[in-house]
């Protein structure tokens, strides 16, 4: 039965002779396209965007108004907790990157990209830059709400700039880590599961209560994990608490995480070529 009704698509007419070539993309052309794509994803996924802002905001309000007076009866708890909330916010937001990366790696999209003459890793760059932009916006909203409920920082414009820098560096570090987790995970669901573990780290830091109120064995963990120096740095910049060597530790940890995650991620990315 070769006489099926002629389908509509058969009106496809012969076009140019099949001899065209894809030029190799120069510079950061591919990165620009993928960043644009990820940003469209970001804007269209209204729920994720809302969660990235609402969840940390609710947590902040809860800590300030429910636990705040119990932890610090003098009423200054909001100042203490905001830097921690900022980092929590970045963590929540970056977790989404693991899912987006995993989704790309487990569908045919990545195969098509890998068979084109361009840096296929650019698709990951798109997700990382998107996460940075989205989380900076979310952080700004959270800080705005904090100011409304009584957060009173005494930072100079220069110190604010430094805060943005440290927060951006932290977002990049945790995003790279989540991107690598997304590459390692077998499915988007698994990626979201692994990512959850990382989100506990802020609770084991000086984010919500000073480290010296914890049991001794926990103090050691809290003092030596990467999030505590980042929080202490932000706290010092915003509120003028003692800085010590926190800034060095904060930058050092973030750079180390970025390097490790990037090397691990690049290895995973190469290894997974052709397998899904």
């Amino acid at each position: 039965m070769t006489t099926a009704t002629v389908p509509a698509s058969a009106r496809a007419t012969a076009t140019a002779p099949a001899s065209a070539r894809r030029p190799r993309l120069r510079g950061v052309a591919a990165e620009r396209v993928f960043i644009g794509r990820s940003l469209i994803h970001s804007v269209r996924d209204v729920e994720a965007l809302l969660m990235a802002v609402v969840l940390p905001t609710m947590l902040m309000l809860m800590f300030t108004f429910i636990f705040g007076n119990a932890i610090d009866p003098s009423g200054g708890y909001v100042d203490y907790v905001v830097p921690g909330i900022i980092l929590l916010c970045a963590g929540f937001g970056a977790a989404g990157t693991a899912i987006s990366v995993s989704r790309d790696m487990t569908t045919g999209i990545i195969d098509r990209i890998r068979t084109m003459p361009l840096r296929s890793g650019a698709v990951l760059t798109g997700h990382v830059v998107e996460s940075l932009v989205r989380n900076l916006v979310a952080t700004a909203v959270v800080i705005g709400v904090a100011l409304l409920v009584g957060f009173s920082p005494n930072a100079t414009p220069l110190e604010w700039l430094a805060v943005v820098g440290v927060v951006a560096l932290y977002i990049l570090a945790i995003t790279y880590l989540f991107a690598a987790i997304g590459l390692a995970a077998a499915s988007p669901e698994a990626a979201s599961g692994y990512g959850f573990i990382l989100l506990f780290l802020p609770y084991l830091s000086s984010a919500f209560v000073p480290v010296d109120t914890m049991p001794e064995w926990l103090q050691w963990i809290a003092e030596n994990q990467p999030i505590t120096p980042v929080i202490e740095t932000i706290r010092s910049l915003l509120l003028g608490t003692p800085m010590g060597d926190s800034a060095w530790w904060a930058v050092g940890w973030c750079v180390l995480i970025i390097v490790v995650a990037a090397v691990w991620g690049a290895w995973l990315f190469r290894r997974k070529a052709g397998r899904r």
Binding site: R21, R22, P23, G108, D111, R112, T115, M116, P117, R276
Partner: peptide, 10 residues
């Protein structure tokens, strides 16, 4: 890569 296109299984 400049001369091919792939439509994969998924």
């Amino acid at each position: 890569q400049q001369r091919i296109a792939l439509t994969g299984q998924s």
